[in-house]
Design a protein around this nucleic acid. Structure first.
Lengths: 336, 336
DNA sequence: CTGAAAGCGCTAACAT
DNA sequence: ATGTTAGCGCTTTCAG
């Protein structure tokens, strides 16, 4: 492992120049820069991130905090963020909060070690103390997926998404439209559910369809939860809805399976629409609202990079609202 | 952000003593240790990992390299590893290889920055050059899930797993047992498929059941892939198997859905067994072989910790073969 | 058991 | 554009 001095010697310059040439900060003549690069590759030199960080105060590393790993949405955001960071030359340190002890130590120790230049918080509901600790870092922070008080957040417009989903069903002639959303417990961590429900209700109201509490089933965003909620909703043939809007694709899959088990055909007897465009959505032919979580991760990184290195920005993701898109497949059809 | 000197001043000792007291290396009297800890908490002091790493050569950070994030197995391993690392006070830097450019820079730049004390490679098929680079780091490395030439690896016994799965079917009286495994392309990244097929064939042969190439369908370990492979296998009613052993739960789910679509009942007309104990397995009532990927991640960390801090080890995960377990649910039944 | 002193390997003024 | 000089904030000999 050669050090900067050996590169300097080989290139016939000082260590300072090597540093400048390799990092791109400060001016170096093209010729020297070239010689330095060659010397560096020849020796297989790679800067020691610790020494560099200590001296410069920059770590080229961002922390990303997620509540779980085992849900499709988080890993997709993570992939987007990871790949964007890599292309900017940044490392990504992962903090998974699954568990109270872990949660405490992440906020009270790990994030304070000055190992990160910035933090991305994914779909987290944080206590005010946790938010305070984050802000105390005096580092750029951006949230993805859920509004955090005092922290800038990238989120899709959940109300608009569910309005769109519901309007799609209405436009197909459905009026008996049920909704499977989140329950109180789930709300704690996401507060996405409420927004989705609001959009659903707005759409119904605009269409002059009265709201019916019996058409709402709380669930937990999982396949299994969706299955049980759907059974509940579809069980009574006299009150059966003709369409279900599920607040996540996984719950929509559960709904499709429940409908089959009840002998209903999708979409003939029941239309189903979800939200996410999950990896399985195409397989199930699920009509859904895509929300591009990878892009969300990517955008979060762009926002941070813009703060970290103000001139480097390529595209203006900062003021673009996050996109979503209705993907019409084969689980929705005209009401009979 | 207070520095070590302020803590030293408040505790009335030198910076060296603070360092010793807080890190646990070198001897400090209990009384002093106590005073130092108090001073540290009072000031909210947390060591700067960069300064510490630079001075000590230890980073308290391990890198984990995965080929994808969007498969259940990887995130499960990741969760296990993350949580184990956290409890040891280590950070986890994630490298996701999805893409050639990314792959190159991970191996040629990122891993060389001396930011990690050790590396975990998950289910990776590496070129010999990549392996060489890893070994060149002179850092502890452990693989999870696939044998890497020259690198110690933790893997379940895939042959034994699939022998068990197949024997379970045989013991239920099945003789027409099909297998859905990996295809050539997939083999590149995992080489798990071959082992699974070997176990399947061993079990059949031991039971005196002749192998039939028509009973094997290659696929790609996905739900969709399993679905199509199963349709192929089950399509002809005259040659239909009475049981299917799928090399992953996702493919098993696909098989179940394909069977339904063909009007077959599971397990009455068809028994299905998978491998993984995927999060959805219980929902589908799938009989499967659990392989505890979280534990695999956890064990990988224990192995590394054992090298990094030789005396600290709690349990002996080093010489224990990785466990797997047949979970009998409701997709397997006696052959009719 | 504790303190003083010498770096770890780089970067950032400040000169030139 | 480049070199010189101080550190960045800790850890670790080495003394005592």
């Amino acid at each position: 492992m050669p050090g900067i001095d050996e590169v300097a010697r080989l290139a016939g310059v000082s260590a300072a120049t090597v540093s400048r040439a390799l990092s791109g900060r400060g001016s170096v003549s093209p010729a020297t820069r070239e010689r330095v690069s060659e010397a560096a590759t020849e020796l297989g030199y790679v800067v020691s991130s610790n020494a560099s960080s200590l001296a410069s105060g920059r770590t080229r590393n961002v922390g990303i905090v997620v509540p779980f790993l085992n849900r499709w949405f988080y890993t997709a955001v993570l992939e987007g963020a990871q790949s964007a960071l890599l292309s900017h030359g940044y490392d990504l340190t992962l903090y998974n909060l699954r568990g109270d002890a872990e949660r405490r130590s992440v906020f009270e120790d790990f994030l304070l070690r000055k190992r990160v230049d910035a933090v991305i918080a994914v779909s987290l509901e944080l206590t005010s103390e946790e938010v305070a600790r984050l802000l105390n870092l005096k580092k750029p922070i951006v949230g993805v997926g859920g509004p955090l008080p005092g922290i800038r957040t990238l989120s899709v417009d959940d109300v608009a998404i569910s309005r769109l989903a519901t309007e799609h069903l209405i436009s197909l002639g459905h009026r008996a439209i049920a909704h499977i959303g989140g329950d109180a417990e789930f709300e704690m961590d996401f507060h996405v559910p409420t927004n989705r429900r609001v959009g659903y209700e707005q759409a119904l109201t605009s269409a002059g369809i009265p709201l019916d509490p019996a058409r709402y089933a709380p669930s937990n965003f999982s396949l299994e939860g969706g299955y049980h909620a759907a059974k509940q909703l579809l069980g009574d043939p006299r009150t059966r809805p003709t369409a279900v809007f599920a607040a996540s694709d996984e719950m929509a899959f559960g709904t499709i399976l429940a409908a089959r088990d009840l002998g209903m055909r999708v979409p003939d007897d029941l239309s189903v629409v979800g939200v996410d465009n999950h990896a399985y959505a195409e397989f199930f032919g699920l009509t859904t609202i895509a929300q591009f979580p990878e892009l969300q991760g990517r955008s979060a990184v762009e926002v941070l990079m813009d703060e970290l290195q103000p001139h480097t920005r390529t595209i203006d993701t900062l003021n673009t609202p996050l996109p979503f898109e209705l993907m019409v497949r084969s689980t929705t059809a005209r009401a009979v």
